[in-house]
Write a protein that binds this DNA or RNA. Sequence first.
DNA 1: TCATTCCATAGATTTTTCCTATATATCCCT
DNA 2: AGGGATATATAGGAAAAATCTATGGAATGA
Lengths: 318, 318
Amino acid sequence: MNFTIRQLEAFREVMRTGGISEASRVLNKTQPTVSAMIASLEEALHFKLFLRQKGRLVARPEAYFFLDEVKSILDRLDHSARIMDQIKDSERGSLKIACLPAAATHFLPHELAVFLKDKPEVQASLIMRSSTMIADMVASQQFDIGLAETPQSRQTIKTTEFNVVGCCAIHADDPLANEPFLTPKLLSGRPAALLFEDHETAIQQRRCFADAGSHLNQRFELQTFQPALELVENGLCYCLCDLLNAETHRIGVRGKSNVRFLRFLPGILSPISILEPAQRPQSVVATAFAQQLIARMSNLNLAQINAAQAAQHSPQLI
Amino acid sequence: MNFTIRQLEAFREVMRTGGISEASRVLNKTQPTVSAMIASLEEALHFKLFLRQKGRLVARPEAYFFLDEVKSILDRLDHSARIMDQIKDSERGSLKIACLPAAATHFLPHELAVFLKDKPEVQASLIMRSSTMIADMVASQQFDIGLAETPQSRQTIKTTEFNVVGCCAIHADDPLANEPFLTPKLLSGRPAALLFEDHETAIQQRRCFADAGSHLNQRFELQTFQPALELVENGLCYCLCDLLNAETHRIGVRGKSNVRFLRFLPGILSPISILEPAQRPQSVVATAFAQQLIARMSNLNLAQINAAQAAQHSPQLI
DNA sequence: TCATTCCATAGATTTTTCCTATATATCCCT
DNA sequence: AGGGATATATAGGAAAAATCTATGGAATGA
């Protein structure tokens, strides 16, 4: 057949109001327009829905049946329109995120929480994996967004790179905590927590201590930075980590923290990337979240972390 | 929102074929037309359904979701269109018929059977009532069509009147069966079956016999004509009845009948009407059936009944 | 490199939609 | 019976939309 949605809407309104004139007022159309719409609908159906008795429309039994059909169609249409509207505002959809340990415990969950606050219809999944696995999972389109150490450039992955700067975590009571920045010289001989031997950050740290002729006293070796920062929290050591780990730690403690994050020279950079599948288009939600994440990563800096930490100390001010 | 059905159809086809060019061929539109339709659909949704990568359309995840919605809507629409098409051809609907005894056993069921032969989706109900009750039930819109003795004219009933002529039913072996027509004189003194005393046909019969100075020998008094004709079938009496009863009897016997229906003079007329509710419009099916019934009633005559009866005697000729 | 395929854009044209003005029928009230 | 109000239909024109032809750019494969 050859209906139009407008015809169906007009018909529904004519049935509801009982006449063309009244319906035309509701529909913000003129009476002849609605009259023509009904006429063309009847033409499309090849039979009259109404009899014209005494200058009025009188619905035939078929019109009541058709009304049910039309209502159901228009309701269905309206329902879809509403859902599509939610999708447009990324209030509906699904989001699959894979994330390295540095951000998995607090940083990303927190970002996700902010993003999903007013989006009850978005279903999200978040997993923690090693950077190489994350790259593979994004490349194979199993996940929408990955946060990982910058992988080898490949065609199947679109990367947005960040060089997250390193800093030094030290206990607040340590006299060094008052320095404007720290160096291998200042930290020489003090107990340190490092990641395992092969990890890029450990390699860099050893190199710059060696370059400065300072003594690196490795007291702890760990898999990830979060436990290392817990040791710093207890005053057992200092630790060189990147801002992502610093921020994750800050969010994690929630209340007062004994760790201070200070600038460290020479600068150490950790190449971290947001990964997206390159072969297939992203969903609206994924695009929106990636955008938020990129903004957040760009904005990552020591000043902001310390300010947020200070705010946590006097929460009544917030 | 502001979709059009054409947009949705175009979208479905683009998704199915994987591109605008191919879809435009299927849809019998030009490629720029379909391109514009997709563009306007995206505009209505306020977000892109496709990314344009390397000169091709690539569907975003949302497009697949939307496709499900669109398919369901278009299917629903198609389903309704098909049903409305059946209704147009009165192949679907309901039909409530009330009918007087004269036609209830065979005449009307037979008409109904002919009418509904190729209309499996029409639900019909048929009841037998007295003429006064039929008039009331049609007037109160409980029934779509009534076949009854012509009632007092009232605003709530639209009547189509027929003056069904009376005839004489007589056993084939009776010598009178060879007369061209019968009169009170010829039937004088012979055993007759009549309806109860108050019935209009009985009154008329008594009157015309009295007028002719002939003897009316009422051997049987009955409620309706069908049992009377059964008595005639067994050669116990003759009977004056109307053509509707004659036709009903003819259809009922199906095989060889011993009853002959002869012209009777003076003419006796039974006012029978097809009744329809006047206040509300009729359904398409009811209109169609009423039309068939009117044609059939108009066509009711002795010659046709006798011809049909003759055909029953030699069914191999049909 | 060249032909082909695909999509987008521009401008013209056809079709559809919608409005104004008007006619007609009915109803209600005087 | 007549005037006013209301309801629908029709005619004609203006505005909007749909659709076409022509064309250009980008990618692909021979």
